[in-house]
């Protein structure tokens, strides 16, 4: 079964505190504390980048960050889990 594509909602203001990204999601009015790699995943599927499947997100992340030593499958699994959480909280939607 083909994996679904997801896209992040519009750009969110973010303040970094001790390594966390504290972001404000305007549509819901909710504030989220996000730890790596969630902010990076969100940036990879921002409105300017377009929707992507977990595998496509992995490709974008590898292009943007140094990820030597991490197997594609492992990273894709982590990405898929985070996408599910982000969908439930509304920061990301299926496209």
């Amino acid at each position: 079964m083909a994996a679904r594509r997801h896209i992040a909602d519009a750009a969110m203001p973010s303040v970094t505190m001790e390594g966390f990204a504290v972001v404000f999601h305007a549509a819901s009015g909710a504030t989220h504390l996000l730890a790596s790699p969630v902010p990076e995943i969100l940036a990879a599927i921002g409105p300017d980048r377009g929707a992507a499947t977990p595998d496509e997100i992995v490709t974008r992340l590898r292009a943007d960050y140094d990820m030597d030593g991490e197997a594609d499958d492992d990273v894709a699994a982590v990405v898929a889990e985070r996408i599910a959480e982000l969908t439930a909280s509304g920061l990301v939607r299926a496209a």
């Binding site: 549509a27 819901s28 009015g29 509304g90 939607r93 299926a94």
Partner: peptide
């Protein structure tokens, strides 16, 4: 304005669930 935002967000989440 806050109630409006909450209401429209709730509608959006329902839309996503039922799309």
């Amino acid at each position: 304005a806050q109630e409006r935002r909450s209401a429209l967000w709730e509608a959006e989440m329902a839309r996503r669930a039922l799309a």
